[in-house]
Design a protein around this nucleic acid. Structure first.
Lengths: 205, 205, 205, 205
DNA sequence: AATGAATGAGTGTTCATTCAT
DNA sequence: TATGAATGAACACTCATTCAT
């Protein structure tokens, strides 16, 4: 069996195992068995548990980013439609690849270095991308805005957090579709950001 | 030394250790040493690593809920002020008890069963509370329910996710205060919620 | 069982195992079993295979040096008798502790760093000591001698090699006593060195 | 490429690897790579690591014996000159083939059966040859045997041990030539032997 | 004549857990 | 109430060895 195919099988098995048990608890034995190969082969191809996990994170992150990009690109759309398409693609990917999503959103970020950094890279990329979309859309919709760099970063964090939370919730709650989750976030973010751009801020008292 | 005091020491040590190393990597040896007792005593009081971790989650979850409740209760406030008070209390607690927050938000949720369930309980309790606030605000603003139960739940999930993400970001970013994090979310969320309740929804096409 | 006793048992077992199988082939499993304890205990007391082996080398080296010293010291003897006593003690120790001797002479020196250094220390100590004895004896017997520092070092190497070879041969050949081996070396070294001191050198042609 | 050539390449690589890392630590992977062939080919030609090591020992032992024999044979010489020629040839070979010498003197003898036996065979052959020389010299010097067979054997062991020790020392000490090592041993040994043969023995008391 | 692909068996090491006191 | 001493079970990782081609 050609090397590339075997390697894909192993990564599939590893993603599944890491998603279910977490990095520490997942055992190389189980991963090998799940992949239908012997343990030494896993080591021959992927060198160590750490590298295997890193490879998983990278592959899944790229797949997720590619899915979102594919949902948005190639069509001439107004900004709000672009945002919508991106969110939909994101929630659809998360729904269709729950293990992938668990590895990226949960496991990768909690295993300390060097995984957290690897996962952060993707998170940051998404945050920047989505924030860009939203900003663009908001600007177009509401004109120039007074909003600091710090605010943008904080908002991106809030947004990505919402998305993660909604994606997980959607995956765990029967009957909730990706479309529904995307719509919730779209409304939440779109309207909220719109007001912010119009400087209609809430303040205590 | 009375049992209650010893037990508190152990839980303190355990929370710290679990926060720093994660459930799997934290060792009973280190926890015992950190608590200043012998390992058998930890087992005598808390039976097993699993029960110890569960006890940590429970104690910290209760503390967090209590902190939020204390911030909100006892004063007659309009829904938005109640939400603000809750958010402020939440971010303040997370900032003042970073280990506790790490255990609850990161570690507990990534270690599979039975811990995830334990952590979800608290999260759900918060989500329900927030959903209540949203519903109340919606009713107050527009009388009849212009928003479905399902929508409220979804929004609550989004809000809680934002809050979690922001709390972690605030803890990890020097110079970000609890108040600032709360304000960011409040602006983001309340404005978005406001629009939603006015039925100004975004929809594709 | 007190720690000191246990530790001695483990070292005994390890010396035996290392002597029989060599450093690499000896397994911690076997050593633990031979010592009548569980493997974790071996690690608790001696940390690693490497440290265990080092501890063996050190203990056996000290025992050998002590045995030789005990054979020589405490009595007022002429130099040749001192040499004789030392050689006898050395061969006796090697005969009575064959595993110890194998570990010191064979295993320790062939496992690369850091063991070789550890073993060399002892070898050097013995070489210097024995060379000193011989030199002293020879000087007394034959007067001042013309022999360079380099020659002394080379001779010490030759001497120690002879002793090692004879000790191993004596251990492996039934019926050869320590006394006989010591006598062979004494004659070989004593006479040979005597002639050297008298500058009666052999040269080709 | 003809089989004989390939096989030589493999043995060369193996000797080098065994000398550097020892039998256990040397890996078939490295040996195959060093020989510039694939691992299965090594197995096709040499069957197993054990047989490969044995083949190395045998080839190197024969080479060493041949070198010594070539140094001595073909000329009619008195025993002392024969010994000198043999020693010179021996030290020269060891200096020029350090890996070979390490394998024979260190590695082969420390890896337990069946290698030790294999190495002993060569050592014994040398010892017997040396013993023959000694015996011959004794007879020539004094006619009848003033020295027992057992004594001769013991002396041969001592001499061989000295030679081994000196050869290793010479290889590891920069600036020491084969001739110098041979001279040291010759002086040491021959003088000592001379005295022995004149029955000038040292004895205790 | 030669190899890319694959594995069974074993190693050192760790850790949650429990006696005996 | 408290612990020093001890272990069963597992895990990451390696390596000599063999098919199938």
């Amino acid at each position: 069996m050609p090397r590339a195919v075997r390697e894909r099988q192993m990564l599939d098995a590893a993603v599944r195992s890491f998603a279910r048990h977490g990095y520490q608890t997942a055992s190389m034995d189980e991963i090998a068995e799940l992949a239908g190969v012997s343990k030494p082969l896993v080591y021959l191809y992927l060198n160590s548990k750490e590298e295997l996990f890193t490879a998983c994170i990278r592959r899944e992150a790229e797949a997720l980013l590619a899915a979102v990009a594919a949902g948005v690109e190639g069509r001439e759309l107004p900004p709000d439609e672009r945002l919508w398409a991106g969110l939909l693609a994101f929630f659809t990917y998360a729904a269709e690849h729950p293990d992938s999503w668990v590895v990226l959103s949960r496991q990768a970020r909690t295993q300390g270095e060097p995984f957290a950094t690897e996962a952060s890279r993707m998170r940051e990329e998404i945050a920047v991308y989505v924030a860009g979309l939203i900003g663009e859309a908001a600007r177009e919709a509401h004109g120039a805005a007074t909003i600091t760099e710090r605010d943008v970063t904080a908002l991106a964090q809030a947004l990505v957090g919402s998305a993660e939370s909604l994606a997980t919730w959607a995956n765990e709650t029967p009957g909730v579709t990706a479309k529904e989750a995307a719509a919730t976030l779209m409304n939440f973010a779109w309207a909220g950001l719109g007001n912010l751009m119009k400087s209609e801020r809430w303040s205590p008292r």
